[in-house]
């Protein structure tokens, strides 16, 4: 297996790990958003609670969610290793900084760290609560469901929490704006005809998805205000 470990621990191999896990997480964002939109479409919270329940009890989803956590972790660990190598490769810093690249591309690590903090808060507030049985129960058609909607609704009536969420989505937009097209470049998927399309899609994606995510707390906050 030496060739495989060689490959995966080379700078290029590590970048491929970043790219593939990143692309997976991009896909996850889409699925997650689709679910979350039910917070708006059904203000009673029933649709969302049923959806959350189904997700929590489907074995396939369980496996995928473990994978998801694993990929997040791998994305983080790999990025830390790369950042350490990169810092060491520079050695001494310049006294005048360079500006010949986008701000987002130069600050992926910082952006990622903020997103990580967001994740911790986010998981602690919603995911951990539902997993540790702290949810109040609610009944739809004779079946009992955890009232995750209630928790979310309560959270988004808090202006600070809502603001935090919205700001983090803004930063995620920057992370995605570089990450999306960068993932393709790392995999070598670069072509005169298709790269402009990938870049275009990446731009749209990195704006639309975070906005869609951010609309939810704003909308819910407005409902509660």
């Amino acid at each position: 297996m030496s060739w495989l470990t060689d490959t995966l621990t080379s700078t290029l191999g590590r970048k491929v790990i970043m790219s593939l896990t990143g692309l997976f997480l991009i896909l996850f964002l889409v699925v997650h958003l689709a679910g979350n939109l039910q917070l708006i479409t059904d203000p009673t919270g029933e649709a969302f609670n049923v959806y959350a329940h189904t997700m929590a009890n489907n074995p396939l989803i369980q496996v995928v969610s473990i994978g998801n956590f694993f990929f997040i972790l791998l994305h983080i660990i790999t990025s830390i290793m790369l950042t350490m190598k990169n810092k060491k490769a520079r050695g001494v810093n310049y006294s005048v900084g360079g500006k010949s690249s986008t701000w987002a591309s130069r600050n992926m690590g910082a952006l990622g760290t903020v997103i990580l903090i967001f994740l911790v808060v986010h998981l602690k507030g919603f995911w951990f609560k539902s997993k540790s049985g702290q949810l109040e129960m609610i009944e739809y058609g004779g079946v009992e469901y955890g009232d995750l909607y209630g928790v979310v609704n309560a959270a988004y009536s808090n202006i600070w929490y809502t603001l935090f969420y919205v700001v983090c989505m803004g930063l995620m937009a920057f992370h995605l704006s570089h990450g999306f097209q960068s993932a393709f470049q790392t995999l070598g998927l670069n072509h005169k005809k298709y790269t402009p399309i990938i870049k275009g899609v990446g731009k749209v994606f990195s704006i639309v998805i975070p906005i869609a995510f951010a609309i939810i707390p704003i909308w819910m906050f407005a409902q509660n205000a």
């Binding site: 700078t11 290029l12 590590r14 970048k15 790369l82 190598k85 990169n86 060491k88 490769a89 520079r90 360079g98 010949s100 690249s101 986008t102 591309s105 130069r106 992926m108 570089h178 097209q181 960068s182 470049q185 790392t186």
Partner: peptide, 9 residues
């Protein structure tokens, strides 16, 4: 040398 992070600089 460090790893490429596609900044394009």
């Amino acid at each position: 040398f460090g790893a490429c992070t596609n900044t394009g600089a």
